[in-house]
Computed example of a mutant assay.
Amino acid sequence: MKYILLGSLGHITKPLAQQLIAKGHQVTIVSSQAAKAAEITSLGATPAIGSVEDIDFLSATFKGADAAYLMIPPKLDANPWKEWIGGVGRKYAQAVKASGMKKLVFLSSIGADKPDGVGPVSGIHLAEEALKTLSGVDVLFLRPAYFYFNLFAVIGLIKQAGIYGNNFGPDRKIVMVHPRDIAAVAAEELLHLSFKGVSVRYIAGDERNSRDIAAVLGAAIGKPELPYVPFSDEDTEKGMIAAGLPEEVAKNYTEMGVAARTGIMFEDYQKHRPALSPTQLEDFAKEFAAVYNS
């Protein structure tokens, strides 16, 4: 089988590629960085260097493939961000149609059932809608939970202020997952290619409120009394801007926090809860501690 994987050598695409290659399949990895070509080749994959916004490049790359794993890379200078994400999704749809490819696994997100109010995930919703328009193409939307790796962003806050904080609220359970568990699911689906029409699969590893997260991370780094401090939405946005994020990004991440706090981010997930994947918060906390102490 011939697979096309977007996402360069990221935390999902690299292990996904390794699993497909180990099964003897032909894998092409798309990257925007020519410097990644040698490492892609060393994995046993073929590099395709180009932009996800280049429909002609994507169409040529997709042509002749049995299936693809699609994702939308971060672009923190995009403005308006949601519309940029949705626009990339429309370009993917055009390229898939031009190439004649018939099987897609798309990295979506928990909350992508919502057309608005969930920050950048509202852009992912637009991308889903674009891919749904494809005729005769089987599309599986993977909707993983909040990545554990996002928690690395609070290391500076813990070291500087001695707290763990966000605008998620203290009691709302946040659904989380490890990228390697997403890669395992993506590999499973691509190897079997049994999905038909348009379908959705949620991926989650743990469900914990912010107090629990603070306690588990604190214990792992030798700070068992690490407190959770809820931030107002205004302070959350201002804090991200002060940390160097563009206002558009800060606004959208703040909105995503509100969606988590109110629960709207998780409404459809709660109706279709999957069996939890192997990596629990305590498992990730060991990785967190290693980065914290490095």
Rank of each mutant, 00 (worst) to 15 (best):
D283I: 13
K103R: 05
A34C: 02
Q18Y: 10
A215K: 12
I264V: 13
F168V: 04
P230V: 15
L107T: 11
E189H: 07
K75S: 10
A187R: 02
F266M: 13
S42L: 01
I182N: 06
I203S: 08
L276C: 04
E53S: 03
L9H: 04
R211H: 08
K286A: 15
S8D: 03
V200Y: 15
H272R: 13
S108D: 10
V185I: 13
S199R: 12
K102Q: 05
R143F: 06
E287N: 05
A289V: 15
K173E: 06
H11D: 14
A243F: 06
R208P: 14
D283R: 10
E188R: 13
N150P: 13
R208N: 12
F57R: 03
S32R: 04
S294Q: 13
P224C: 01
D66K: 05
L140D: 05
Y292A: 07
G86E: 10
L134H: 00
N209F: 15
K103Y: 00
T236K: 14
D233F: 08
A243D: 06
S108K: 07
V198R: 13
F195W: 10
D206N: 11
A112E: 09
G86Q: 15
D138K: 01
I182L: 11
S199M: 13
L276W: 09
M256P: 08
G162I: 04
G165I: 15
K63M: 02
E207Y: 08
I40P: 00
A17V: 01
P80T: 10
A161L: 12
R273T: 06
F149E: 11
D116F: 12
K14R: 08
Q18G: 13
A215W: 15
T279L: 07
E255Q: 10
K251N: 11
K91T: 07
G136T: 02
E282C: 07
K286T: 12
H192W: 06
A67V: 00
A242M: 09
Y292V: 06
T254K: 12
G89K: 08
Q19A: 10
D268P: 05
F57A: 01
K102V: 00
K132M: 10
P278T: 09
F288E: 04
Q18W: 03
G239C: 02
R208G: 07
L151D: 05
A38W: 01
S108R: 06
M71I: 07
Q18T: 07
I85N: 10
E267M: 09
S32A: 06
S32G: 04
A98R: 14
A260L: 09
G7T: 03
K114M: 07
A68G: 00
A37N: 02
I203G: 04
L276N: 03
I85G: 12
S99W: 00
V249L: 15
H272T: 12
K23F: 14
V198Q: 15
Q94K: 06
K63N: 02
K102N: 01
R172D: 13
G162Y: 11
F57Q: 00
S135T: 05
Y148N: 12
D206Y: 14
R172H: 12
D181Q: 03
A95V: 09
Y148G: 12
F231D: 14
V118W: 14
E255L: 11
D212H: 13
A65T: 01
V27C: 00
P274L: 05
Q160G: 15
S108C: 15
A290I: 14
E267W: 07
A78M: 02
E248L: 03
